[in-house]
Design a protein around this nucleic acid. Structure first.
Lengths: 203, 203, 203, 203
DNA sequence: AATGAATGAGCTTTCATTCAT
DNA sequence: TATGAATGAAAGCTCATTCAT
């Protein structure tokens, strides 16, 4: 069946692209994982590049959609940012494969990478909106919203990635979902309050 | 002479690895840029991998060294963190090439990437120390220092990278050094105070 | 219906084999042009090769038949040769597609090409007969009939082909049928009289 | 050595392109014949196409040069045409490989084939010049020189090719050089005198 | 120290052909 | 009859690496 085959390929591709990079991923391996012939991949996707892009777009759409939904469910910018953070961390954690690709396949100069950055800018824009909303609500301080949103995105992404590798390299065997709250808490604390001790805070 | 040739190769390699990734960089192109024969590279470096690792280690050492020196020049954890931030942003900005590699060549599963992550952990450890110092000084609030340091590293790195690409894609033509202060300021504001408006802040 | 589908495939195949060669023609493209599924072609023809051979045989039969009929309509070898020439040139011109295949797909070592050459020999044999007839009528000089027939075939074929490409490459926009008489005339003049000026001719 | 390797590749390529067509020729086979690794071919030629074009240009240059020299050695247009014919037939005969490529790889629509046709036009132009010369000397009749030259080229080329295949398919075992004179004679007779018997000639 | 011609494993992509429906 | 998804054997090309000079 058509859809079924494509799904198998997709799933296999995520795996393979995950533990290799785009360049080192081999179509042969993807085909093997998917349990189809190599030609079958090419019957459905014009090229390795197209397959990869389809994959990333799919992931970016999912995560964007997920974030929007979670944000919509919250009242007030402060809670929305909290939701966004948690949603983002949770999603990346559960799709570690995608998380790796997100940060590693985006900082290059191919056309594809250019497009990915545009996608990421959409993600950042969502955070930016929340920040703007909070600023106008008076609950967030005046700030450079674009830069701040980017920094938030960076802080969250790298935190998750570091944790993923930490576990992978045998550093931690706590259940993944148990680890999420503490990571989100650390990020929240940093992003909401900063590092300064409150008794030293005056402005 | 020996040293000279090696330097040429190094300089060329930085350039080439910069606009390609490790995988897409070609020894031929590096040789061309360096103005030496391909064989010459292999006379000095055992492999592409070794050349790349040498390069990255060099960069990591420089940046680590640079950070330590700048931190040492400041009094008090608050200022030290400020210095660290500025030093890191400045270095990455001026070595955009290295900045790209830093984030893109690190999230993989090759031995090399494993080693790079260890290097990055050193960098993070520096920040961590400052945070610990601040905490014990009472100037920073109690916190999960490792996670916070990672988040700080992520926020700063991605902010710089996003800015580099923004410029590269024609988005901004301000002088690079003029842009640094405002980026550092945004990061500082975020990391010191968080996003919360002070009138809403109560602990 | 059956016949209809086959005709569509045939027509499409002529087109596609025309602007590509046998090797570069793709079954996919033929199917697309024909408006049928690729499998349908294989339902009617065992292979690409078989389709191509059927096509060429069809063309060779048509041209052979056409030549014979035109020759039969003329009295005397001189007029017969004239008719043959005109018929051949006209046919090739009107089936430029076939003309290209005729000369380009024949000089190889595949079984198929071997068979085509046999077919061409039939065509040459027709000319040869006319020459023999003319010789015995005394209207043609004694000659090496086989070689001469081949030369006549070559002269006519290449002349037409060269003209087809000349037009195709934008060299001439006269109506095709207007150009035929002058080409036939030039060929006739060459083949009947040769290049020698009559005042220099003395046997 | 550089030149030596290239020569080996060239020689092998002629052979392989000869008994296959351009499309069916395999780089692996060429490499095998040449006794070098496949990569070596690509070290010297950017692509299969480039190798092939280099080959054909080489052949076309040789034959053009050969023709010009032989023509220059003759006095009067009549003898020049005779020389040209013999030179052309001889060359093709001795380079049957090239002869096949000449006629079979030229009637297509790739860029490469376009270029080859331009080359052939140069060859035809040489014949044309001789015809023009003869016409102005009064030794050749007035004629459509371009068309006639093309026809001469076609007659000679196809004649040789047909003979080459005839032998190859076991049709004749006379020494190649012994066969040339009779072929040239037949062509000469046709092109100089045409087919008409002299007693019927009154034009 | 330096060179660059030569290598060949490895990779992506193509496409005629098959076959279950 | 007709379909089109699936196949897998090729084949062109790349490029890190080697090594004789």
């Amino acid at each position: 069946m058509g859809r079924e085959t494509i799904d198998q390929i997709f799933a296999a591709a995520v795996d393979v692209f995950a533990h290799s990079s785009f360049e080192r991923a081999k179509m042969d391996e993807i085909a093997g994982y998917a349990g189809v012939a190599k030609g079958t991949i090419y019957y459905h996707f014009k090229s390795k590049e197209e397959l990869f892009v389809a994959l990333m777009n799919d992931g970016m759409e999912q995560i964007t959609e997920f974030l929007r939904r979670r944000i919509a469910s919250a009242e007030g910018a402060a809670d929305q940012l909290r939701e966004a953070l948690e949603a983002y961390v949770t999603y990346l954690f559960r799709n570690g494969t995608f998380a790796k690709l997100l940060l590693s396949e985006v900082w290059g100069s191919t056309q594809r990478q250019h497009v990915f950055r545009a996608r990421i800018r959409e993600l950042v824009a969502i955070i930016e909106e929340v920040l703007a909303q909070g600023e106008s609500e008076g609950v967030f301080r005046p700030m450079d919203k674009r830069e701040t949103a980017v920094a938030v995105f960076g802080a969250a992404s790298v935190t998750v990635l570091q944790e993923i590798f930490h576990r992978q390299e045998g550093g931690d065997d706590m259940e993944i979902d148990e680890r999420i709250p503490s990571l989100v808490a650390a990020l929240e604390a940093l992003l909401y309050r900063g590092v300064i001790s409150s008794r030293n805070f005056n402005g």
